Simulated assay, not measured.
Amino acid sequence: MFKHSSESQITITQLMLPSHSNFSGKIHGGFVLNLMDQIAFACASKHSQHYCVTASVNRVDFLNPIDVGELVTLKASVNFTGRTSMVIGVRVESENIQTGKKKHCNSSYFTMVAKNDAGKNVPVPGLILKTKQDVRRYTRSIARQEHAKNRSDAFDASEFKVTEHLKSLEKHNVSLELNDY
Rank of each mutant, 00 (worst) to 15 (best):
residue 118 A to V: 09
residue 88 I to K: 05
residue 72 V to L: 09
residue 104 H to N: 14
residue 40 A to W: 00
residue 43 C to R: 03
residue 103 K to C: 11
residue 83 R to W: 05
residue 99 T to E: 00
residue 92 V to G: 06
residue 119 G to K: 10
residue 41 F to A: 12
residue 90 V to C: 08
residue 49 Q to H: 13
residue 127 L to W: 09
residue 147 H to I: 12
residue 75 K to S: 14
residue 93 E to H: 11
residue 129 L to M: 11
residue 145 Q to E: 15
residue 105 C to N: 15
residue 102 K to W: 04
residue 42 A to F: 08
residue 42 A to W: 04
residue 42 A to D: 08
residue 107 S to I: 03
residue 149 K to G: 08
residue 161 K to F: 04
residue 54 T to D: 02
residue 52 C to L: 08
residue 91 R to L: 10
residue 102 K to N: 01
residue 162 V to Y: 09
residue 126 G to K: 09
residue 77 S to A: 13
residue 84 T to P: 03
residue 153 D to Q: 15
residue 99 T to R: 01
residue 90 V to E: 02
residue 67 D to L: 14
residue 155 F to H: 13
residue 124 V to M: 06
residue 49 Q to V: 09
residue 142 I to Q: 14
residue 139 T to N: 15
residue 116 N to A: 07
residue 64 N to H: 15
residue 123 P to L: 01
residue 78 V to E: 01
residue 61 D to F: 05
residue 68 V to L: 02
residue 61 D to P: 02
residue 100 G to M: 03
residue 60 V to H: 05
residue 107 S to G: 11
residue 154 A to F: 01
residue 100 G to S: 04
residue 78 V to T: 07
residue 105 C to M: 00
residue 45 S to H: 03
residue 104 H to S: 14
residue 90 V to Y: 06
residue 155 F to T: 10
residue 119 G to I: 06
residue 98 Q to F: 13
residue 149 K to D: 15
residue 123 P to M: 05
residue 133 Q to N: 13
residue 98 Q to K: 14
residue 155 F to P: 09
residue 145 Q to A: 15
residue 158 S to Y: 11
residue 84 T to Y: 01
residue 85 S to P: 02
residue 43 C to T: 15
residue 112 M to A: 08
residue 92 V to L: 04
residue 130 K to A: 11
residue 118 A to K: 15
residue 90 V to K: 07
residue 49 Q to C: 08
residue 67 D to T: 10
residue 92 V to E: 06
residue 78 V to Y: 02
residue 78 V to D: 03
residue 66 I to G: 06
residue 56 S to P: 04
residue 51 Y to I: 13
residue 75 K to I: 11
residue 101 K to G: 04
residue 78 V to R: 01
residue 142 I to V: 13
residue 159 E to W: 03
residue 65 P to C: 00
residue 66 I to L: 02
residue 49 Q to L: 12
residue 83 R to N: 14
residue 113 V to D: 08
residue 45 S to G: 11
residue 81 T to N: 04
residue 152 S to H: 13
residue 45 S to P: 00
residue 52 C to Y: 01
residue 75 K to L: 09
residue 154 A to G: 09
residue 145 Q to F: 12
residue 112 M to D: 05
residue 41 F to P: 00
residue 56 S to E: 10
